[in-house]
Design a protein around this nucleic acid. Structure first.
Lengths: 228, 228
DNA sequence: CCTACCGATCGGTAGG
DNA sequence: CCTACCGATCGGTAGG
């Protein structure tokens, strides 16, 4: 995240504004604005519920002009999804066995995952919309994008937990069960963050710390030493 | 669940077929068919992505005839959502402090929750679609339905964990943290079940047992006694 | 339950 | 980047 700006205003590859923008720079700026508004509207209404007309209206251009930047509604959505996945991955690098004790690695990783959803709510919500987009025309392409990322993530977790188990940093248990346990915990936390409403979301965030401790207690090699 | 039939073919209030159906019986049968197909299509494509024309086509009637049974697309969706919530609640009665040890209560409850998603995938997916329906016209009404149910569920859990804590059946910790921990665990499990794809879903189900044990280990008053 | 039809809006194109 | 416009489809109504 280049700038500490709020709520998804930052796209992946924005350039700072100049005093006299060239034609290509103006075009890039329009494309960036389109991405911001499209991301927000897709996140709020889903793929079919968001209309290109409204996106363009929010940017201040007419609908046909959008096709100078994106070849179709589907292409626009997939572009945004790819960026959201990439940005999320960059903001939350997977934990490594080299980085230190498993407990600290996992806790940090959890916090960066949640942090992305807090700082980039529209990008996170777009991923949620994509996951929910099980039917319809772009089903296959969305699934490919998401599954590729998920498979890679799962493989990293398998290695992480296998090594941690060998070092006695985690309870002695089937590695796959440990991986699924982590995925379930993360998905549960993200569900609250992505689907929760208003106050609930904030209230939930305040309980992240004790929830993490209870999770760690479950997979810790020595639960009695986990301070609660 | 009255009949052990597969995949959501059973609506909430179907009556068994007779040899010579009256006019009102035929009408009720049509309404039931409409619910089955609408539930499947809403679940697959979302609210905006599903069209009344296709629903009617699957049932074998013309679009205007739908309005003899439901006053609008929105009313149809809300009817289905209400039924899905009710059915899920009936199939998964919340755990009670009277019913026995907390551990057994929670495990049984978890299995009935997952069982509903397995036996009634379209009803469960409709709830997922509704939760995702954060924007658009029916935002407020959907939220009211879901929040009402959620609040009630959360209150029951608070009482459950408070009493269990007093009896020493659960780790000594803030009751709210225990409640949120349970909600997170359940949401994580449901995420896999509702959003998962094909083989993954099955593979995940096979790990439900060890995942449950790891969860219980985290909130158990004596984790060392949890057999893994 | 049907045919016939409504205005609105959709994603996208032609052409400049 | 625009105006003008396309065919298709949408939810819903009139009238029987």
């Amino acid at each position: 995240m280049a700038r500490p700006t709020s709520a998804d205003s930052a796209a992946s590859n924005e350039s700072p504004p100049r005093s006299r923008p060239s034609a290509t720079e103006a075009g890039a700026a329009t494309a960036a604005k389109l991405r911001v508004e499209a991301r927000a509207l897709f996140a709020e209404r889903g793929f079919s519920g968001a209309s290109l007309g409204e996106i363009c209206s929010r940017v201040g251009i007419r609908k046909p002009s959008l096709y100078n930047h994106f070849s179709s509604k589907e292409a626009l959505f997939l572009d945004l999804l790819q960026r959201a996945i990439d940005d999320w991955g960059k903001a939350s690098p997977p934990p490594s066995t080299e980085g230190g004790p498993l407990r600290e690695q996992l806790e940090l990783h959890l916090r960066t995952l949640v942090g992305f959803a807090v700082e980039r709510p529209h990008a996170a919500a777009l991923c949620r919309v994509a996951v929910s987009q099980v039917g319809g025309a772009l089903e296959g392409k969305v699934r490919d994008l998401l599954q590729g990322h998920r498979r890679e993530y799962q493989k990293i977790l398998e290695e992480l937990f296998r090594e941690a188990k060998n070092r006695g940093e985690v309870v002695d248990m089937d590695v796959n069960a440990l991986v699924y346990s982590w995925l379930t915990f993360v998905d549960g936390v993200m569900s609250h963050q992505l689907f929760g409403y208003g106050r609930r979301r904030q209230e939930f965030l305040e309980h992240l710390d004790p929830m993490w401790k209870l999770y760690w207690r479950g997979i810790s090699p020595d639960p009695t030493e986990v301070g609660l």
